[in-house]
Design a protein around this nucleic acid. Structure first.
Lengths: 510, 510
DNA sequence: CCGTAGGGCTAGGGTTCC
DNA sequence: TGGAACCCTAGCCCTACG
């Protein structure tokens, strides 16, 4: 009688079976049993206990189980069992997945679902204990069409059915909720057993320094716009919006206070950029190349014609190289002396060597930076603070040692991460990225977390790449006044150039 | 002299090579060449043409090529070639990927990258044509440390370097950009050749009533589908998609304010839900089961103890079933007569059978509905209007044919889509979802576009699932007064229950 | 190419709580 | 009382899909 085969894990259930069920048990019986079963704690169901307290009228635990099994996975109903028969072991339950045949319509599903939810939610059977003060009876009126007419699919027939049908009303008991005073702001009580409280307002939880740092790190890692990713990855109990908000708050604070604490990706990058510029354009040859690094990656791509504009300098000197060189010495050779950090020198050299990406790691970091933030800051010397809106790149540079003119520069096209490897592979035309480090920044670069970054940065970059793959690279400069503490340096001849990065006045000074 | 082996696709480049390069060519020379090469259109580089116009001072096409190859993929520099020597074929370029050794630091990469970007972006060589009106010269000051000191890695030494170094200033030419008016929302000009605009996220700009009316008029004029035309014609600074979206929003609002025009998903769903309720609780057995569908899915999950409360009805009847049944006939058997749509009957049966999800399609549709809107409306007969904020489910039901008492009911936990399959698999306790359709709605369901949906709904649902996976299902009822046109029906004994769904007074009447 | 649907993200503004 | 945390909604953008 009972299918014991646990192997059955897929079956279809059709109207015949339901017909059989409903001809034997009323819907109310069925629902009552389901409710009672649902109330059983734990996984195992003590059918004897169920049947003792059941309101279904079923007196046999075995029958209860049978009915339930039919409900749960379509076990065949049978009608011969002793009233005192013990139920089967739970282990004899099937692992079964019933398939609808044919599938009901989407609307029907939704309809049924919504309906059942209402009923389910009122888990107070109308024949049990009275609704107490915390419960409210709400009538749910149901029209029972007179079912003699067949084929009631059109609206008119539906209406006719309604007219001829009868209405029944079933009480729905629900937990009474305290009226919200609107402004009282009281916390929603965690009413224990009734569960499903409203998405309760979470307890307010301040941000610890640790969390802030974690956030900072995450932003550096993911960029400023990927709050959802950050939230999923590192902040289990903070929402993306909270992260964003907190980040804005942090930025505001640090921006207004002064140089802030940590160098963000953008900031570090931009500070680095300035130093790099310092180095790149006239690197003395007096450096020690020993124990330094050089990384340049170039690959000749098969048929990609991407190119990037190169640089302007024009000075020409030729120097005999010590290695692998049969070249003429057009430039006085200096003994390699370690002047700066090896890394710096190497990178400066890399720039000189063609503004190519040095390593895939570098490429990815660049890409990441580019993707994760559209703002690039190069702040030289000054302690000014600037906040820029998305999609604007700032570079603060100046003529002399304490220059504080911010520029905004649009980044050239950059590959998205997935294409990082590919992007490295240009040799027909040198790639636009490069590596170098200028070892001697004039002053400490003030921290500034700018660079809010659109989540579209990735795609945006991609688009740029496609639409501006030629020489079309633009630098938008923006010079702004110095804010914050007075800069000890002089602002050199930087012009006041206000570039509107967007229609929204995307450039903001904080 | 030239490595022709195309097999070389991986090599390392180190400081020695760079040293060799820089001792022979100045950085400016290098950069100039790179820029010039970058400007070459197409994939192939005509070195003879390059050398004719070069500002590098290099007079040999062969040398140019050699230098470029060194830059691109580290080809060894050599110094013996005729000035008139023809360059090698491009095909002799290597496919090579240079690896940095050792890899530069991340910061160094970023620094170099940003720096180079600035330079690259100003692709107006300072020795070429004057910047025109659309260009702006911005000084980029670069500090050139005096390179005699070695090991300048600490900040202090960096500073010292800066002090002792010299600054040079290179002009950076950039396209002048029109000032943005801030909130004007003007479109960012597509500055043609300069490319790479950043697609800035436009500042959000709410829709004024005037705009809405304008939009309405435009829609009436052009029809609902020609958003592109409308945008071009009347909405300079709105995109077609925005118009479409706004229109949908407007329609939703208006739909809820009165009879509206079209039936929305949520509304249809909820109307269906009511009908389903009508059907479910006392389905007559006089239906024709032929050619109908039944779908129920149940699986016994391994160790999941999720359960859902079942329903209240208590009436018990038993009927002999025609199929597969050896059961006792406790209930009068009626010949199956097709009373309603097959789908409906099937779904009603499904509810009866345990409020389980019928099919995965249904499950997903349910999930979708739940996810996409937190508001469920079941409006019976009345023409009242209600707007609810997220996370509240309303069901309007009543005793009789024109009932208009809205209830708010919290949805039970619902799986998110990814877990839909999993969610189907409960058989230890029946799942909460179910399918059924009541075929005979009493009245036409008024349209109501409610269900504003936060994008957090998903997470909320998820949370519900986790925190209320037991029997904790609650129904919060909310009865509101009828708004809008007078309902022809009577408002039955629905109580006035106002449940505050959230701290924000989420329940709003429109 | 145009439209739509749907998802992601955030600015903005409200509410609650400290 | 103000600010911080929380929350929601509207608006924008993007991608798929038709």
């Amino acid at each position: 009688m009972v299918e014991k085969s646990k192997k059955r894990n897929r079956a279809s259930i059709c109207e015949e079976e339901i017909s059989a069920l409903l001809q034997r048990y009323s819907i109310k019986t069925v629902l009552t049993l389901l409710q009672e079963v649902a109330k059983v704690a734990g996984e195992k169901i003590d059918w004897n206990a169920v049947v003792q307290n059941t309101a279904t009228g079923i007196s046999s635990a075995r029958e209860c189980q049978m009915l339930w099994r039919n409900l749960a996975y379509g076990q065949t109903l049978f009608d011969q069992f002793d009233n005192g028969a013990n139920p089967m072991e739970d282990d004899s339950d099937l692992e079964c997945e019933l398939e609808a045949f044919p599938a009901p319509s989407r609307e029907a599903s939704a309809e049924a679902t919504a309906c059942v939810k209402v009923l389910i939610a009122s888990d107070c059977p109308n024949n049990s204990n009275l609704p107490n003060n915390s419960s409210i009876e709400a009538p749910l009126t149901i029209n029972i069409p007179s079912c003699k007419n067949s084929i009631a699919s059109s609206d008119s027939s539906v209406l006719a059915n309604a007219v001829h049908g009868t209405n029944i009303c079933i009480p729905v008991y629900v937990q009474k909720q305290p009226l919200s005073s609107g402004t009282s702001g009281e916390k929603r009580p965690n009413s224990g057993t009734s569960g499903v409280n409203y998405p309760p307002r979470r307890k307010r939880r301040g941000w610890s320094t640790e969390e802030d740092m974690k956030l900072t790190a995450a932003v550096q890692k993911y960029g400023e716009r990927n709050w959802a990713n950050i939230a999923r990855g590192d902040f289990e109990d903070r929402k993306a919006s909270e992260l964003s908000q907190r980040w804005a708050s942090l930025r505001k604070k640090q921006g207004s206070s002064n140089g802030g604490t940590s160098s963000l990706n953008s900031e570090a990058q931009l500070a680095a950029a300035r130093r790099a510029v310092n180095m790149a354009l006239d690197m003395p040859m007096s450096d020690n190349w020993k124990s330094t690094r050089m990384g340049t990656v170039g690959t000749k791509p098969s048929h990609q014609s991407q190119k990037a504009p190169a640089l302007t300098p024009n000075q020409q000197l030729a120097t005999a190289g010590p290695i692998n060189s049969q070249m003429s010495t057009k430039r006085p050779f200096m003994n390699p002396i370690a002047t700066n950090s090896p890394d710096s020198m190497v990178k400066a050299a890399a720039v000189a060597a063609g503004a190519r990406i040095a390593t895939s790691a570098d490429a990815s970091s660049l890409i990441e930076a580019t993707r994760s933030q559209n703002v690039v800051h190069i702040i030289t010397g000054g302690s000014s603070v600037m906040k820029s809106s998305s999609n604007v790149q700032f570079m603060r540079t100046a003529h002399t040692k304490a220059p504080i003119s911010p520029y905004s520069a649009t980044l050239p096209s950059v590959s998205r991460p997935a294409e990082a490897q590919k992007a490295q592979g240009y040799s027909m035309k040198p790639a636009v990225q490069a590596d170098l480090v200028a070892p001697t920044p004039v002053e400490k670069i003030p921290e500034d977390r700018s660079a809010p970054l659109g989540n579209q940065s990735k795609e945006r970059v991609e688009k740029h790449q496609s639409c501006a793959s030629g020489n079309a690279l633009r630098v938008d400069l923006l010079s702004s006044e110095v804010e914050g503490k007075k800069s000890s340096g002089d602002i050199c001849a930087s012009k006041e150039i206000n570039e509107s990065p967007g229609p929204n006045g995307a450039v903001k000074q904080v």
